[in-house]
Design a protein around this nucleic acid. Structure first.
Lengths: 278, 278
DNA sequence: GCTTGACTTTGACGTCGCGTCAAACCGGCA
DNA sequence: TGCCGGTTTGACGCGACGTCAAAGTCAAGC
């Protein structure tokens, strides 16, 4: 028989742990002195303690370990628990890998440009949303800006505020030659099939912005003229973190670009659908 | 300005989280209604919130994030923090990989033999210890048993209890032909250079059992005659979990093999030094 | 105006596996 | 007999929130 400290030393655990396991009923001392309350452990209890530790190392909680030791659990049930655990561990493993990549790319960024100016790119998922948009091809950025303002102003006038949500510009992939193919429109709070006719014979057509599971996003103040550097920033981030672009990118105007007096410039969220590079 | 729920929805966090960050001073609402206490957030606070989330995702604690946002930390310091974090994440990554291997091998074990009889192999590290031992080569198991009992009994008589620790049998690698090369002796509570002469002209010589960083161990009741199956069990475990044997194995007798009347058989710990298979 | 239901406030407790500390008690040795 | 180191119970702390409770607030519908 050993006192708690000796037994703890033998088993390479802390006395606190042994007292705790006693309290949970996982491992009661072989004998407790009625006078002093001292716990006495037998070396024969070591296998049981090791059993607890082995199961704990598999990631099971102490609550789960209890019934297992009492053989109240069939092998099939244990197998099911372990399968669940395996899935969980695999998830957290991938999460840790991602974290590691992000840390390393951030370190590399500091080394490259000394600055700690975090781009604060974050990953999020976005749901599908009804979208009322103008499909157009623009020759240059000036034209893009004109079209965006046209949609913004006419849309603000002609779409009910309760229905209208946010102004969004989506790049399309089917660019013809040098032109920029875009979709410019408003996300809607609920589906609607009605189109909207703008000045100059343009038409907003009802459609849907598809859901994207993983979106690398960056919120940035400033007009869309200055947004090139931010696009580049997100691009570098995507590369450095071992992702690749997996769809058309979006610009979401979080604040109306046709602001009140004292307007400080738009707040725009840049979104790139991404997936992990295999 | 948004109420907490809307802002939470936009940023894909919970309201509770926002209140918590407010409490910590990480992200105070742009305005609080003095009457009602309602928090109102501006969309312009989104970048800051995203900054918090980005740093949190790197694994930094909220405590660490605070000073970072206030720019009270130099890039060099941030770099150092990230390097530390990286090391930590790498450690936990490897731990998760190990856990995953162990879970999978346990599942495979259930599938193979249906039983949930956990072998309860656990990894531990052992320190170097002074060792007073007999070097011998035995032709068969009978001889081993005789030698072990000889050492056990003579040792128990001739070594002071305060100095004598546990009876240990170590396999040696330099086996000559068919014979089993062993070291049989006692670990000591402190170093000693004195040899001990046994009956039959055998000699216990002072030496040292080296430390082992990673030891796969299994505690098993029963005499050493029955121990073969346990050796096999540890062996399978080692293979299934992607380890390899990295040194001479040991048998540690946790309870004296020369017991009192009513003796139930020895309690023996089998130890294999192991390392990860690359 | 009143009701209703969705939203918000503060405050408190729970999580998980112990680590750490405090105050009092016990055991063996000089 | 004193002393030092071990032991007991009990309590709090951790980290980042989730969850619940009781009470107040807001906008819409009647």
């Amino acid at each position: 028989m050993f006192r708690i400290g000796e037994f703890a030393q033998i088993a390479q655990v802390s006395s606190r742990q042994l007292r705790f396991y006693d309290q949970l009923g996982l491992l009661q001392p072989a004998h407790i002195d009625a006078q002093t309350g001292y716990r006495y452990y037998s070396i024969r209890q070591l296998p049981r303690l090791n059993g607890i530790l082995a199961l704990k190392e598999l990631g099971l909680s102490l609550e789960q370990v209890g019934p297992l030791l009492k053989d109240e659990i069939s092998p099939a049930e244990l197998r099911a628990m372990l399968m669940l655990k395996r899935a969980e561990v695999e998830r957290s493993l991938r999460a840790e890998e991602t974290r590691l990549r992000h840390i390393e790319s951030r370190i590399a960024q500091i080394d490259r440009q000394g600055g700690a100016e975090g781009f604060d790119v974050i990953l999020k998922s976005v749901e599908a949303t009804p979208f009322l948009s103008l499909h157009c091809s623009c020759a240059d950025m000036d034209e893009v800006v004109r079209m965006v303002h046209l949609v913004a102003e006419d849309g603000a006038r002609q779409i009910r505020p309760a229905l209208r949500d946010k102004l969004i510009v989506v790049a399309r992939n089917d660019h013809d030659g040098e032109k920029l193919a875009l979709e410019i429109g408003f996300s809607l709070t609920r589906p609607s099939n009605a189109g909207v006719r703008l000045t100059g014979d343009y038409l907003l057509r009802a459609g849907e912005l598809p859901a994207v599971e993983t979106m690398a996003t960056l919120v940035r103040p400033g007009t869309n003229m200055e947004s090139h550097s931010s696009f580049g920033a997100v691009g570098s981030w995507i590369e450095a973190n071992n992702y690749q672009i997996a769809g058309p990118c979006r610009e979401v105007f979080l604040e109306s670009i046709t602001g009140p007096p004292g307007f400080e410039g738009a707040l725009v969220e840049i979104q790139f659908p991404v997936r992990l590079t295999a």
